[in-house]
Amino acid sequence: MSAARKKHNTEDYLRMYKQMVRIRAFEDKANQLYLSAKMPGLTHMYSGQEAVAVGICEALTDEDRITSTHRGHGHCVAKGANFREMFCELLGKEEGYCRGKGGSMHIADQANGNLGANAIVGGSMGIATGAALSAKRLGKDFVTVCFFGDGATAQGLWYEVMNMAALWKLPVIYACENNGYSEYTKTDEIAAGSLVKRAEAFGIEAFQVDGQDVLAVNELTSRLAGRCRKGEGPFFIELDTYRYHGHHVGDINRDYYRTKEEEAEWKDIRDPITNFGKSLIDQKMFTAEELVAIDNDIAADAEAAVDYALKAPYPDGSEVDMHVFAGVDHALDYLRGAR
């Protein structure tokens, strides 16, 4: 390996490591906020799946778009979002990415190409494919990645838009994060046959990859994104991964659908951050102490962002009918015919 190549890798690897740790730190704080009854509503933890979001988003440009899911904090962080605005959004504060109107399940970060999380399972498949149609029609070279879970493969919308994406060779990558559970049900019980073959039936090139291996995910996505830009899309990737928490933060007693032993095995043996960290140390890119220092810095960042968000103001009541329509300050007057 040449020195330049190695340096390049070192920077990329450090970034990927940091981004995964940031996601984990964000989710740990979000979970604490819920447990301590400081966060309104529920949230869905991404912990355990970090290598998927980071491996993919690190292969994308700022111009590239993603659509995200109800389990979307990881995608959002990986695509470049800030802790502060994210925590503010989780707490319904004015400075949140969506001025407190979206919350955990609807964070959108237009500036970084995140077209938004979606609380309807599979709800963003049309949006992602439409963004790809936009790119092709307008002659832009951005690629769109559509994140969704294994549960969403049961939605008919996917087959409609895969059909059109394949017909029109759209620059879209369908990224199915198979974490083994569709809400509270094993994926085996809701999905017949092979997910990969479903995509292949449309003539779409499909891949299966270890979703706990950030480098494997990143390498594959880089290649497919490049091919999308050359008009060779769409593609499908099934990423095998695991969610450490329940379906949502309130899903605590989950023995009836999966064992503690199974959870422990994934956490102990297949944790994407631990394993990637070990390989960085093994390759002598970083020392264990350096990585611990990184972890601590990020944890402190997350802590500071939470403190900031807890103290941040809520939106003014007058915002309640703002942003209903673009170009209309207050919807209620407008709806009554005010000019």
Binding site: G126, S134, R137, L138, E160, N163, M164
Partner: peptide
């Protein structure tokens, strides 16, 4: 046919695609 696009009989599909296209600079 680049701008007057015949779709399959997939109403949710092309409606959803119009939403995504509209969010990314097109006016479908």
């Amino acid at each position: 046919t680049e701008r007057i696009i015949d779709t399959p009989i997939s109403e949710p599909g092309f409606m959803g695609m119009a939403v995504g296209a509209a969010m990314t600079g097109s006016r479908p």
